[in-house]
Nucleic acid binder design. Structure first.
Lengths: 143, 143
DNA sequence: CTATATATTTGTATTATACAACTATATGGA
DNA sequence: TCCATATAGTTGTATAATACAAATATATAG
């Protein structure tokens, strides 16, 4: 059985990614990486670069640099870990939270305008299936 | 009505993209950009950089560089346009087609293993919705 | 026949990423 | 207790994908 659906997904995914990555630059003042890192800190609370790197599936050095950019912008604070003087916690600031919310809203608005003609059913299903895909990949990677 | 589905989609999409972009490096010997360009030439036939850039939503210079990488690898041939001596056609070679097919198969296999436990219905729907999303964006951009 | 438009390439810059080398601190075993 | 090794994080270096601007060569319209 040569699964037709797989073929369709495979083809659509490449377009999907390119489209999103390219277009979001034009409407977001926070770049992807910063947005995702901020969202992570906002959702799961303060963490060090090692944990963040694991959770975001990035190299520690990558997160270290991204975090220091956010520190410079005062979006996060770098707090020494009192129990381990090698380690730090990055914690989102009020300014950072505000910036995150503003960005989230912009992304939301844009998505909303793209999907304005979709049925509620389709929107719901699309979200569910994306989540299902991500969950499936997570399970496969960390069984 | 603050659409919950939008919120879910917005959140899932960022993870989705990162996951795919990062993991595909480990199993593909052709990088994203090369793969997409080759696939374009294979699907729609020979074209010049201007056309390709439009179709792929990239800058002409970007395509120019990507194309020349493929030329060096003998995956595509650069053919002067007989009607316009400024212009060229890039045409996929047999080697390129072979490479493309091999890569497509790898991507397919990987996707297949990720989605092995999904129902046919879900796979079908996921592909359809991704396509619907891409089509919607295309319509919005080029009405 | 010249001025402008067009197809493409090349120079330069930016962003996101990884790997390797390094620093500072923690920890476990003799 | 002290040293060897492990760990948290940063910094140096490299690569890939991208865009914008400048340059080149050719086409086209008045």
């Amino acid at each position: 059985m040569s699964d037709e659906s797989l073929d369709l997904i495979e083809r659509q995914v490449t377009d999907f990614i390119r489209r999103i990555v390219l277009t979001e630059k034009t409407y977001s003042n926070l770049d992807r990486s910063a947005y995702i890192l901020l969202r992570q800190l906002s959702t799961y609370g303060p963490a060090g670069v090692k944990t963040l790197a694991q959770d975001l599936h990035l190299d520690i050095s990558t997160v270290s640099r991204q975090a220091s950019v956010l520190v410079n912008k005062k979006y996060v604070e770098k707090i020494p870990n009192p129990d381990d003087r090698r380690a730090y916690y990055y914690q989102i600031t009020d300014v950072g939270s505000h910036e995150l919310e503003e960005n989230k809203q912009k992304r939301f608005d844009r998505l909303s305008s793209i999907l304005e003609d979709w049925s509620d059913e389709d929107k719901k299903r699309f979200g569910e299936l994306l989540k299902k895909y991500n969950d499936t990949v997570n399970e496969k990677l960390n069984p």
